[in-house]
Amino acid sequence: MSRPRPTSFDEELERRLAILARCEEPDRRLPRTDTIALAAITAGCFAIVLIAQAL
């Protein structure tokens, strides 16, 4: 890390929260298409298990 770090854990927490509140963070959300793909894979996998049971 390039910025000087304080000596106490609580001071460091305050410093980080202040930086995060100020800075322009990139969007950390998973894009909608990926979210849908992940949900579909998860649900589809359980459906395949049920189909395999029936075979």
Binding site: M1, S2, P4, R5, P6, T7, S8, F9, E12, L13, R16, L17, I19, L20, C23, E25, P26
Partner: peptide
């Protein structure tokens, strides 16, 4: 004392963008 907290310990807190 005057030493900074170790990096690994600091990273247990919310991570900074860098």
């Amino acid at each position: 004392g005057a030493n900074r907290i170790e990096a690994a310990l600091a990273e247990t807190l919310p991570l900074l963008p860098e």
